[in-house]
């Protein structure tokens, strides 16, 4: 609930957004001249001002401790993507697909966590989130072993730890 928050987390997340946006601007442009950096600063501040004014900032999207946990999670996710990608490739070339529908329970408390979990399920090849009810996902899996891999709940636990 961004409205009921006290003022301090708001300013912290605005600062985090500012740093991220300016880093993005710098990486995409690559200029080091003072004048151009100043123009970049102005455009970043303008974008931030507009998004604060239109109330489209999500204030609990970037807690600071997430920045430490996130790289570890991404490395784990890349490992998982490669593993299930190899399984999917094998299924495609051999042709012995046994598609399955299953219901997966999500134990994350907030919406960001659930969205992240559904995103991670869809991102790993071989499993797609079709529908989201309150805390159960309808998942389509390409084979039995991919479905069992998902039902072991390792990913669920990891993402729950990410959003504490």
């Amino acid at each position: 609930m961004p409205k009921n928050n006290p003022d301090s987390p708001k300013t912290i997340s605005i600062i985090v957004y500012f740093i991220l946006l300016f880093a993005l601007w710098f990486v995409l442009s690559g200029y080091l001249k003072t004048l151009l950096l100043f123009f970049g600063l102005i455009s970043v501040i303008f974008v931030l001002w507009m998004s604060v004014r239109s109330k489209s900032l999500n204030y609990d999207a970037f807690p600071l401790k997430l920045l430490i946990k996130l790289p570890i999670y991404w490395i784990w996710l890349i490992k998982e993507i490669i593993k299930s990608g190899l399984t999917t490739t094998k299924i495609i070339w051999k042709g012995n697909y046994t598609p399955q529908l299953l219901k997966v329970k999500a134990s994350q408390k907030n919406d960001t966590g659930k969205a992240n979990y559904a995103n991670a399920i869809t991102l790993t090849p071989g499993t797609v989130t079709i529908e989201i009810n309150k805390d159960t996902f309808l998942v389509h899996a390409l084979s039995k072993e991919l479905a069992e891999d998902l039902q072991s709940g390792e990913m669920d636990k990891l993402i729950k730890g990410l959003h504490k």
Partner: peptide, 17 residues
């Protein structure tokens, strides 16, 4: 692959890996 839901998996393979 036979139906829409299975074909999405193949598209996801292109996107990620």
């Amino acid at each position: 692959l036979p139906d829409v839901f299975s074909r999405i998996h193949a598209a996801g393979l292109i996107d990620t890996l």
